[in-house]
């Protein structure tokens, strides 16, 4: 069997390397910095949940099926316009999926809803969530108010004490036992 000339062999190797899909992105160059940023971001973002004042916004925190999701709220809203205060028919104002999200105390959605009602001509809009803990206890109403003239939204003064509500859930289960 004849041996190929050394030059041909080398150029063959070079061609093989050039066409080798495994050579692509093989080294820790620009990719390593991106990689570190990507992984670090993933480690940091979920931690921000524990620093937020809003216990109900569990997005990006990988808190699937946490107890917070099990709070159930009744949502009512009213607005003050030229003809005084009147309740908002929530069934007509937004569709069911948004209604459910409002009932989960998602602040961004509540703020958006209040703003949208202001744009329809109201002077002041108020949304109240009356929530029950997983144990069935009624919590303090969560009242969100937007002054349409100033554009300032006031969030609930006392967000529900989730830990306290969960402690009552445990007590309830222990009572059943």
């Amino acid at each position: 069997m004849s041996t190929p000339p050394k030059d041909a062999e080398q150029s063959g190797d070079a061609a093989q390397r050039a066409s080798d899909p495994f050579d692509e992105l093989a080294g820790p160059t620009w990719s390593s910095r991106l990689l570190i940023a990507f992984i670090t971001l993933q480690l940091i973002v979920p931690l921000t949940y524990y620093l937020r004042s809003d216990p109900f916004d569990e997005r990006f925190a990988w808190r699937m099926f946490s107890a917070v999701r099990m709070f159930r709220c009744d949502t009512v809203a009213s607005e003050t316009g030229d003809q005084g205060e009147r309740p908002i028919d929530m069934r007509r104002a937004v569709h069911r999926a948004w209604f459910n999200t409002l009932g989960r105390n998602r602040r961004a959605v509540i703020h958006g809803f209040l703003e949208a009602r202001c744009e329809l001509g109201a002077r002041e809009v108020e949304l109240t969530n009356t929530c029950r803990s997983p144990a069935g206890d009624r919590l303090d109403p969560q009242v969100y108010v937007r002054d349409c003239a100033t554009g300032v939204t006031t969030d609930p003064q006392h967000p529900p004490d989730v830990e306290d509500a969960l402690a009552r859930m445990r007590q309830q289960d222990e009572g059943v036992r």
């Binding site: 480690l43 107890a67 997983p134």
Partner: peptide
């Protein structure tokens, strides 16, 4: 990372003792 954080979330007492799961 996702499994880690979901596990950490569940270590709270209400989850750990099965109150939420039930």
């Amino acid at each position: 990372i996702v499994y880690f954080y979901t596990a950490i979330t569940k270590t709270a007492r209400d989850w750990r003792d099965g109150h939420v799961l039930r």
